[in-house]
């Protein structure tokens, strides 16, 4: 059996440690995600979804427990190693699009490749153009983010997250700021990439409609996993 893409063992996260307002936000999360899964992470506001995503995304460190990405234990890695692993193993899609305004759409898409390689090159440009066409943004490649609509920006962000075929893509309410129509589009796009390229997705969403279209739903409540259900047969296991 293939190595799980992600394995969490007893992961806890506290904020403001050592101060009077210290609070534990995640209380021992166990979670295993297999390659190719499309997992929805749901739960009310404040339940710890973003926190969990940041821990998995190696942007923050857990207070306790262990996180393994593609079989690699991460809690013992130093800052530089975490940064490197983040660049190689993870794609991010955020709620607020988070494109870099000083770069054009196509430049934003190949930014992760450029960071990895150290400089831009023709191959990564070609790949970025191809991805933008794939997400339906042909003709918009050289626009600045500010010249694109919210839905278009989010598609650029998806293309960017997929620019190097990461094993795992983390999306934090990627459709949260979009109208229903754009939200459906963006969601469908992620689903397609998942099916076509076998890329694993962990998607935080508020939208029950969209959650229903995932393979598996994990629900958080007050920092506990209260539900973990495979809702779609045929998903890889």
């Amino acid at each position: 059996m293939a190595e799980p893409v992600l394995r969490l063992d007893g992961v806890r996260k506290s904020y403001n440690v050592g101060t009077p307002v210290e609070a534990e936000v995640l209380h021992g999360i166990d979670l295993v995600i297999e390659p190719g899964e499309f997992v929805a992470l749901i739960g009310p506001s404040g339940s710890g979804k973003s926190t969990l995503l940041h821990l998995v995304g190696l942007l923050e460190r857990p207070s306790a427990g262990r996180i393994a990405l593609t079989g690699r234990e991460t809690t013992t890695l130093d800052e530089d190693a975490l940064t490197g692993l983040r660049g190689r193993a993870l794609g991010f899609i955020f709620q607020f699009h988070h494109l870099i305004p000083a770069f054009t759409a196509v430049e934003n898409v190949y930014m992760p490749l450029m960071i990895e390689r150290g400089h831009p090159d023709a191959a990564m440009r070609a790949r970025a153009m191809e991805l933008l066409a794939r997400v339906g943004l042909e003709g918009h490649e050289h626009k600045w983010p500010a010249q694109l609509s919210g839905g278009q920006q989010q598609r650029v962000a998806i293309a960017r997250a997929l620019s190097f075929d990461p094993p795992l893509v983390l999306a934090d309410e990627p459709t949260g700021n979009l109208d229903t129509h754009s939200a459906d589009d963006v969601f469908a796009l992620m689903r397609e990439f998942n099916r076509e390229r076998g890329i694993t997705f962990l998607v935080v969403t508020h939208d029950p409609r969209l959650a229903q279209r995932c393979d598996r739903v994990v629900e958080l409540l007050d920092g506990h996993v209260v539900r973990d259900e495979r809702i779609r047969p045929g998903a890889p296991s």
């Binding site: 530089d80 940064t83 660049g87 988070h98 960071i115 990895e116």
Partner: peptide
């Protein structure tokens, strides 16, 4: 701040 955060998330090290 935001752009720096994104660049860091995409694998740019502190030094860079």
């Amino acid at each position: 701040q935001k752009e720096i955060g994104i660049l860091r998330a995409m694998g740019a090290s502190r030094r860079r």
